[in-house]
């Protein structure tokens, strides 16, 4: 089952989600967005669906199922 959806096109790479994720599920990816930001990626197997990333994200990247 899908736990989390991310819209990396909105990501500006600030990394707040990485700082606050309690399970280390979020990392900086290699991917650079169209706007030039190095965006994040999520290892869904590690996600505990706590919502910390959603709460801290200034750019509305995350939704938790």
């Amino acid at each position: 089952m899908e736990k989390i959806s991310i819209d990396v096109s909105r990501c500006k790479g600030c990394g707040y989600c990485i700082c606050v994720c309690p399970s280390g599920a979020i990392t900086k990816s290699e991917e650079v967005s169209k706007k030039g930001y190095t965006v994040i990626s999520v290892d869904e197997s590690k996600c505990v669906q706590c919502g910390s990333c959603y709460k801290m994200c200034p750019d509305y990247v995350f939704q938790i199922f």
Binding site: K12, G13, C14, G15, Y16, Y37, M56, P58, Y60
Partner: peptide, 9 residues
């Protein structure tokens, strides 16, 4: 807003 700006939150 810039990356990491609190306005978005």
């Amino acid at each position: 807003w810039c990356p990491g700006c609190g306005h978005g939150i």
